[in-house]
Amino acid sequence: MDLPVVVDSNDDEIVSHELEQMRSILEEATLETHSTPLANRPRLPRIPLSKRNRAVLRALNPMLVTYLEASRDLCETDSILFGAAVAVCRIIGAKLPMAGRATTSSAIPAWRKRIEDRIAKAGALIGRLTSFR
């Protein structure tokens, strides 16, 4: 969900109706992540620090205070902060993987592929050298 964030060039304030949309997205994301086990949470992408993204972060930070004050333990605090990160990704339009971390577990790591390719190239070179000899 990509919301058009209107930022005033003078003071970087976000319009009030957009704040309400952000608050509802934050509420929805924190409720989703509260019921999601840690192993099934999606990996969060890196977000570039542009002027628009900073304005979104500045708008969401004060909203988190009420959630964090009501937090009872560290697990709940982690859930709230992860929900806020998911909300930021949704607001700015960053892509989140749907199935979580479990989808990439069966893939061969890149470092292993590189090593296997080097071994195959070395084997081919050794074969050519022995046939040349």
Rank of each mutant, 00 (worst) to 15 (best):
R41K: 08
L125Y: 02
V6C: 08
A107K: 03
I119Y: 10
T130G: 03
T77C: 14
P4I: 13
R133P: 00
Y67A: 01
I126K: 02
L68A: 15
D8E: 03
C75P: 01
I47P: 03
E28I: 11
A102K: 15
I108Q: 11
A55P: 01
D2K: 15
L49R: 15
S106K: 12
A107H: 01
I92D: 04
E76I: 13
R128K: 15
S35R: 15
D8P: 00
Q21A: 01
G93M: 12
M1L: 14
I91E: 13
D78P: 00
I14Q: 03
M63Y: 02
R23N: 05
V5G: 02
N40T: 08
D12C: 01
S16I: 04
D117I: 11
I119F: 09
S16P: 05
R118Q: 10
A122C: 02
C75H: 03
I14F: 02
T33E: 14
S9G: 04
A87T: 09
M98S: 06
L19N: 07
L57T: 05
G123N: 15
W111K: 15
I126Q: 10
S131F: 13
I126D: 08
A70T: 08
D8K: 00
A94N: 04
L31S: 15
R133D: 02
T30C: 10
F132R: 13
V7K: 00
L129S: 00
H17C: 06
M1K: 09
L81N: 11
S79A: 12
G123S: 06
A55G: 07
T104I: 12
V65Q: 07
P109T: 06
G127Y: 08
R128E: 14
A84Q: 01
I80A: 03
E13D: 14
V86M: 06
M98N: 02
R54C: 13
R58H: 10
V65H: 06
D8L: 00
N61E: 01
S131I: 02
E13K: 12
R52V: 09
S35C: 15
